[in-house]
């Protein structure tokens, strides 16, 4: 099952964030809660955790790109067990 990783709400007045760095590459295994990327707002850097255990299937927003809050940053293919939990 595919799960979207989205640019989180970073504050009521912040409309966009920047992808600082991906800690994982496409095809890497990821665990739910593991930090897989760092995003930036003008004021702070923030860790982004994987929403599921599985594989980082597709990176949509590359490093240094700016994305709106709610935009899909990557697709995680969740493990069957994890998805049925």
């Amino acid at each position: 099952m595919d799960i979207e990783l989205v640019m989180p709400v970073l504050g009521v007045e912040i409309e966009e964030g920047q992808m600082r760095a991906w800690q994982k590459s496409e095809g890497d295994s990821v665990i739910q809660g593991e930090v897989i990327a760092v995003i930036s707002t003008p004021k702070l850097d923030m860790d982004l955790e994987s929403p599921a255990t599985g594989v980082l299937k597709t990176i949509i927003v590359d490093e240094d790109e700016i994305a709106a809050v709610g935009a899909v940053l990557a697709i995680i293919e969740a493990d069957e067990d994890d998805a049925t939990d």
Partner: peptide, 10 residues
């Protein structure tokens, strides 16, 4: 330009 794209006062 947005604060993500250009140098700000910060």
């Amino acid at each position: 330009l947005s604060a993500m794209a250009a140098i700000t006062i910060r």
